[in-house]
Computed example of a mutant assay.
Amino acid sequence: MTQPSTTASARTRILLIGGGVPVLMAALAAVLMISWIPQLPAEIAIHWNGSGADGFGSVWSLVFVPLGITAVFCAVSVGSALPTVEEERPTFKQKFVLVTGMWLSALLSVGIASSVAGQRGLTDVVAAPDPGPALLIGAVVGLILAAIAWFVLPPADPNDGYGPVIDDEDTDRPGS
């Protein structure tokens, strides 16, 4: 039988890694973008194609995108993982979805905040820099954070209901 403190610790890590940290990152990006509003033109570039900016709108249309998408994704992933965590171990699939929230938050927060930052002080938003490199950096940072998050979460339960039951004490596999 699992000790209550072990289960509580696992649930706390699931809440923090699957929801708390990603939503906090996105909230910080939103606050940062709001602080830049006085330095931005009335309309900013919000969409790009291969030849440059081709869609324009209010900064508010970008400020809450990372926070909104991250919060909804994390609420669903944590909400689906917490009630089903048997003892203290999520399944492999639950862990994957939980760390995806970390990746998604970094991708959106870095990418969108960088695209807004590049438009501070511009008089002609058509000249707004391409956000592609910043999105790539956000994706890489997100992968690194997701990898770290994977190891902070409790180990995955090898008995996820889709195969034979494995007794951890009888296995010699590393990392199980």
Rank of each mutant, 00 (worst) to 15 (best):
D124Y: 02
A134K: 07
K95I: 04
N49F: 02
I17M: 13
V97L: 15
P66Q: 11
G138V: 07
C74Q: 09
T123G: 08
I144M: 10
S115E: 01
V116W: 04
L135W: 09
S105M: 09
P154Q: 04
G175N: 14
V85S: 03
V140G: 12
V31M: 12
V99S: 05
G79W: 03
A156F: 12
F73G: 00
A127N: 12
G79P: 08
L28W: 03
T12F: 11
G52F: 06
E87N: 13
L40K: 06
V59W: 08
Q3Y: 03
R89Y: 11
D160T: 05
M25F: 13
T123E: 10
K93Y: 02
L145C: 14
G57Q: 09
P38R: 10
P90F: 04
A146V: 05
W48T: 05
I166M: 09
D157N: 15
L107T: 14
R89L: 11
V99C: 09
A127V: 00
F96N: 03
L98N: 10
S51W: 01
A128D: 03
G57W: 07
I17C: 11
V76P: 01
V85W: 01
L16P: 00
I69M: 14
D130Q: 11
A113T: 09
I37E: 10
H47K: 09
L122Q: 07
V59Q: 05
I34N: 01
K95H: 04
I34E: 03
A71Q: 02
E169D: 15
K95P: 01
S35G: 13
G121D: 02
L153T: 09
V141M: 09
R13A: 13
S105C: 08
V125W: 05
A128M: 04
E87M: 04
R13L: 12
S80P: 00
S51Q: 14
S80T: 14
L40I: 02
G50L: 10
V59T: 14
L28C: 12
F56K: 06
L82P: 08
G175Y: 14
D170V: 06
L62V: 04
P38A: 09
W103H: 14
D168M: 02
D168C: 00
E43T: 12
D54N: 15
G118D: 06
A8S: 12
H47Y: 03
V72P: 03
A53F: 02
M33A: 07
A113G: 13
P154H: 09
P129T: 08
F92S: 13
M25E: 01
A30E: 02
P66D: 10
W60P: 01
T91L: 12
V125L: 04
A42G: 06
L40P: 09
V76I: 15
V72N: 06
A146F: 03
D157E: 10
V59N: 02
L98K: 10
A42N: 10
L135I: 11
R11I: 03
E169R: 13
L135R: 00
I14T: 14
M1C: 05
V78T: 04
A106C: 15
D124A: 09
T84G: 00
I37Q: 14
A26Y: 07
P66K: 11
D170H: 06
A156R: 10
N159M: 05
G175W: 14
P158F: 05
R173A: 15
